[in-house]
Simulated assay, not measured.
Amino acid sequence: MHIKTLVSATLASLLLVACDSGTSVVDKNAEVLPRPAKLLEIRLKNAHDFLNYPAVVQSRQLSVLSFEVGGMLNELNVLEAQRVVKGEVLATLDQRDLKAKVASAQAQYKNANNEYQRALRLIKQNAISQSKLGERKSKREVNKSELETAQKALQDAVLIAPFAGAIAKISIEKQQIIQAGKPAITLLGKAGLEAVFNLPSSIVARVKGKKEQSRESYLILNVAPDRKISIRFKEAALEADAASQTYAVTFAFDKPEDLNILPGMNAVVWLKDPSKPAINNKILIPLTSIAVDGEQKYVWVLDKNTMQVARRDITIEADVGERAAVDSGLQVGDVIVEAGVALLAEGMKVSKWSK
């Protein structure tokens, strides 16, 4: 009996030593693998109901400025993309010769005017003929016209902004000999921009009105493919192009402050297909992606950088079929877990499940 008790005590001690040695059936420090999850990126509903057409950006207020006289460019006070105010001096030609011509014309006019005034006094004394008075008057008028021409040429040697805006293009350089009428500076006003494209006659025939043409329309610039810019219908040509049977259509839009959009840039205009019924742009998600905590509904939203999920409370409309329309809590571009939401927890890492 004593021997059995001793053996039992020895076995118990060995078991305690084994437990204290840190050996475990499950390694708690083992790395937990991300859970595979079916992911869904939130997109606009019925994106396939949109039509798209290549467009070219134009300005509603664009002016190509040029000097009306020729000469060497002496001053260039602006840079491309620089904002200017109405009346600001943009560029100036060398004015030395022009000022000399003005001074000469002023002297000739002054002399001709003095001779004319003298002739007026003499005619009262019958000391001069009417024909002589007429000659001096004509000479005075000629000299006056020459003075005005010289003064205008001096004014035309200065290029002034006719309205506030931004410098779209500079086609001249300092110290360059400028020809009269040659495009010098292109000024883009603040009146807004337009997107012009050709719409097939088959689509035009299905458009009911201006509201129909503007609803849910937007454009994407080739230089900023991640930005959607809202547009609104402005006008459409009433006569189709004979060769392509398309109509020139113009949509207006406002320039975003953080983008430098210039005329001539290419874009793609997206229009709601007029043959499709008008619907609200609701975000639809499958019912399998929605979890419930009491009365609160939520989804698991993925952080693309860490591949971790976080709870996001949402409000939805009444369930319709296998999908629900989200009123708030989600936006286009969010990625949610589509199924198996009951197996997830805050901060859990997931991986994209693929078949």
Rank of each mutant, 00 (worst) to 15 (best):
23 T>P: 02
195 A>I: 00
166 A>M: 07
314 I>Q: 01
121 R>E: 14
160 I>S: 13
7 V>L: 11
252 A>G: 14
44 L>C: 06
326 V>I: 03
81 A>L: 03
96 R>S: 15
270 W>D: 01
234 K>S: 15
116 Y>W: 08
167 I>G: 03
147 L>R: 02
169 K>Y: 00
349 K>A: 14
134 G>A: 13
97 D>K: 01
42 I>K: 01
138 S>H: 14
207 V>C: 05
33 L>G: 11
227 R>A: 04
156 D>M: 15
129 S>D: 07
92 T>R: 13
264 G>C: 03
237 A>M: 03
161 A>Q: 13
335 V>I: 11
272 K>H: 10
81 A>Q: 08
86 K>P: 08
256 P>L: 05
268 V>D: 03
141 E>I: 04
289 S>N: 01
216 E>I: 01
242 A>Q: 09
144 K>R: 13
32 V>Q: 13
180 A>R: 08
53 Y>T: 01
333 G>E: 07
242 A>V: 04
325 A>K: 02
74 N>D: 07
101 K>I: 02
182 K>I: 10
149 T>L: 14
348 M>W: 04
134 G>F: 09
248 A>F: 02
302 L>H: 02
353 W>N: 06
137 K>F: 07
309 V>S: 05
144 K>A: 12
69 V>L: 10
2 H>W: 02
173 E>S: 12
22 G>L: 05
224 A>N: 01
69 V>S: 11
136 R>N: 07
225 P>N: 06
178 I>Q: 09
32 V>T: 13
317 E>A: 06
254 D>C: 07
149 T>M: 14
246 T>E: 11
218 Y>C: 11
345 A>G: 11
189 G>C: 12
97 D>L: 09
190 K>M: 10
342 A>E: 12
84 V>M: 15
10 T>R: 10
295 E>H: 15
55 A>N: 01
63 S>F: 14
337 V>Y: 02
156 D>T: 12
268 V>L: 05
52 N>F: 05
22 G>D: 09
35 R>Y: 11
1 M>G: 02
250 T>C: 09
274 P>T: 04
323 R>E: 03
340 G>F: 04
133 L>A: 11
93 L>G: 05
31 E>A: 13
248 A>C: 08
216 E>K: 04
355 K>W: 11
10 T>C: 10
265 M>V: 01
329 G>D: 09
322 E>H: 03
262 L>I: 01
292 V>N: 14
226 D>H: 09
173 E>C: 04
316 I>D: 00
100 A>Y: 09
150 A>I: 02
315 T>N: 09
147 L>G: 03
242 A>R: 05
265 M>N: 03
213 Q>C: 04
238 L>N: 15
156 D>V: 14
206 R>P: 01
250 T>N: 08
75 E>H: 04
45 K>G: 10
64 V>I: 10
243 A>V: 07
57 V>S: 02
354 S>N: 13
162 P>Y: 15
18 A>G: 12
151 Q>Y: 11
334 D>F: 06
202 S>I: 08
6 L>Q: 09
241 D>P: 00
343 L>R: 15
32 V>W: 07
185 I>A: 06
134 G>K: 12
316 I>A: 08
112 A>F: 00
68 E>P: 08
353 W>M: 06
80 E>S: 00
271 L>V: 01
250 T>L: 07
127 A>C: 09
29 N>H: 12
355 K>S: 10
263 P>F: 09
307 M>S: 13
24 S>H: 12
122 L>T: 02
248 A>H: 04
52 N>D: 13
224 A>E: 01
218 Y>W: 03
68 E>R: 15
19 C>D: 13
